[in-house]
Amino acid sequence: MAPTSERRVTAAAQGDVVVFLIGMRINRWRAVRHWLPALAAMPRMLKELSRNGDSGLLGLRRLGGGPREFGVAQYWESREKLLAYASDRSGQHRPAWVAFNRRARSSKGGVGVWHETYVVPAGSYESIYVDMPPAGLGAAWGLEPVGRRGERAAERLASGAA
């Protein structure tokens, strides 16, 4: 277990922040041949991204959602690197996406997938972590003392430095 911070800290992010949320939902448990490959593809993609220091993936956090929903919040260096990974024919994502679409046509809704991408401009995000191990944006970008960006959320947002 990661050690907790005994002080108030904030994410050391600079500039725009790219947040990519992705997940799946098992709609019919018996449609195993449709949802199991989708479920198994995500760990392979995350492993590939983590091994490649130039991929642009800065950090991730698994999202809960109950026994039939699985998701991941990802923090990216830039939208360009996220889109480059998504379209890379030699990486894990593109073949997994093609295979999922092929299976989805015959699954009649057995499994659902979703994703959301947010490009958050500098000055439009803020964070605070108290007595927490690094998490979320702070785990992706690193941490710094809150005072460097303002003691209150309103100050951190108004500073434009996020």
Score class of each variant (00 low, 15 high):
residue 64 G to F: 01
residue 64 G to M: 03
residue 64 G to T: 00
residue 65 G to C: 02
residue 65 G to W: 01
residue 66 G to F: 00
residue 67 P to K: 06
residue 67 P to Q: 07
residue 67 P to T: 02
residue 67 P to R: 08
residue 67 P to I: 05
residue 69 E to F: 12
residue 70 F to V: 04
residue 70 F to L: 01
residue 70 F to R: 02
residue 71 G to F: 04
residue 71 G to L: 00
residue 72 V to I: 09
residue 72 V to K: 05
residue 72 V to E: 02
residue 73 A to K: 00
residue 73 A to E: 03
residue 73 A to N: 02
residue 73 A to D: 02
residue 74 Q to I: 05
residue 74 Q to N: 06
residue 75 Y to R: 02
residue 76 W to Q: 05
residue 76 W to S: 03
residue 78 S to E: 05
residue 78 S to P: 03
residue 80 E to I: 08
residue 81 K to Q: 08
residue 81 K to C: 01
residue 81 K to G: 01
residue 85 Y to C: 06
residue 86 A to D: 07
residue 86 A to Y: 00
residue 88 D to P: 06
residue 89 R to S: 09
residue 89 R to P: 04
residue 90 S to P: 05
residue 90 S to T: 13
residue 91 G to D: 03
residue 91 G to M: 02
residue 91 G to L: 00
residue 92 Q to N: 12
residue 92 Q to S: 12
residue 92 Q to T: 13
residue 92 Q to W: 09
residue 92 Q to F: 10
residue 92 Q to L: 08
residue 93 H to P: 00
residue 94 R to W: 11
residue 94 R to C: 07
residue 94 R to L: 11
residue 94 R to Q: 12
residue 96 A to V: 02
residue 96 A to K: 00
residue 96 A to S: 12
residue 96 A to Y: 03
residue 96 A to W: 01
residue 97 W to F: 15
residue 97 W to K: 13
residue 98 V to R: 14
residue 99 A to Y: 08
residue 99 A to H: 12
residue 99 A to G: 12
residue 100 F to Y: 14
residue 102 R to T: 14
residue 106 S to P: 01
residue 106 S to Y: 11
residue 106 S to N: 12
residue 108 K to E: 11
residue 108 K to M: 15
residue 108 K to T: 07
residue 109 G to V: 10
residue 110 G to H: 06
residue 110 G to K: 02
residue 110 G to E: 06
residue 111 V to S: 05
residue 113 V to K: 07
residue 113 V to Q: 11
residue 114 W to S: 13
residue 117 T to L: 15
residue 118 Y to L: 15
residue 118 Y to A: 12
residue 119 V to R: 13
residue 120 V to C: 09
residue 120 V to W: 05
residue 120 V to K: 05
